[in-house]
């Protein structure tokens, strides 16, 4: 399916050093449109650092990034957003004190001109917010409902809907499900599925194999700043993936002592 497509983003041998800390030691990943690429790995493996080089937060120390075949050089997150790379960070997605509609259009406010003055077009913003949220299966009390009154999963969904609405070609989700309950997680996974079907490339970070298996088309496992391998859906079993993530041996010992419950 993906073999005929060209990759949307090619990350080649990305290295990132923070002083003496080598967070990434040459990671390569290709992301295809309409495909959900899962990035797995334990805490500190370098997943967040890796996607931050994709979204313009960090400049890679070494390595190349190609976006739609052209080499990329983002200076600021804003450049990445303009190019169509949207990132939903785990806890920085939304401002709880502000309304859903103000959050939705934060940084992209629609304007209406009255004479020489430009005003925030609240009517349009509210309308779009309500309809986009409805598409994602979330019923708001009103567009002026504060984000703080939404559940964690609903907040993630607002952030995802926002990214999609503003024309993201690549949607990066950094551990969107790690703080969520079962029902909220499945809501977010369903949202990811909807987004992928619209032809958007999704990079989905998680350390939960079951969440990855639910929506992933391709799986890359990171460990200590290196790729342990990339596999397509159907080429790998959840058990193998789990084992790869935990670094084989350690898990085997653990499994022995815990009686196979991990």
């Amino acid at each position: 399916m993906t073999a005929s497509k060209k990759p949307l983003i090619e990350m080649k041998n990305i290295e990132k050093h923070f002083g003496s800390v080598i967070a990434l030691a040459g990671v390569s990943v290709d992301v295809y449109p309409g495909e959900c690429h899962c990035l797995l790995g334990d805490n500190g493996a370098g997943k967040s650092t890796f996607i931050k080089t994709m979204s313009g937060v960090h400049k890679p120390t070494k390595g190349e990034i190609f976006f739609e075949g052209k080499p990329l050089n983002f200076e600021r997150p804003r450049d990445a957003i303009r190019a169509g790379i949207a990132t939903v960070y785990q806890d920085l997605a939304m401002i709880p004190l502000m309304s859903v509609s103000r959050n939705f259009f934060m940084g992209n406010e629609p304007e209406r001109k009255v004479g020489p003055f430009s005003f925030f077009d609240h009517e349009k913003a509210n309308e779009v917010t309500m309809s986009e949220m409805k598409k994602m299966g979330i019923n708001l009390r009103g567009p002026d409902q504060a984000v703080g009154t939404l559940s964690g999963g609903e907040r993630q969904t607002v952030a995802i809907a926002r990214a999609v609405h503003f024309g993201a070609k690549v949607l990066i989700l950094d551990e969107p499900t790690s703080a969520l309950g079962v029902r909220q997680t499945s809501n977010v996974l369903a949202t990811v599925d909807k987004v992928r079907k619209q032809g958007i490339a999704v990079v989905f970070i998680t350390h939960n194999v079951r969440h990855a298996m639910a929506v992933g088309d391709t799986f890359t496992v990171l460990n200590r700043g290196k790729t342990l391998g990339t596999a397509k859906r159907g080429e790998i079993t959840p058990e193998e993936l789990q084992e790869l993530m935990a670094g084989g041996q350690e898990l085997a010992t653990l499994e022995g002592s815990l009686g196979g419950t991990v």
């Binding site: 997150p77 957003i81 920085l92 939304m94 401002i95 992209n108």
Partner: peptide
């Protein structure tokens, strides 16, 4: 949330 605001430009 200054950081969240920066992330969206």
């Amino acid at each position: 949330d200054a950081q969240a605001a920066r992330y969206v430009g």
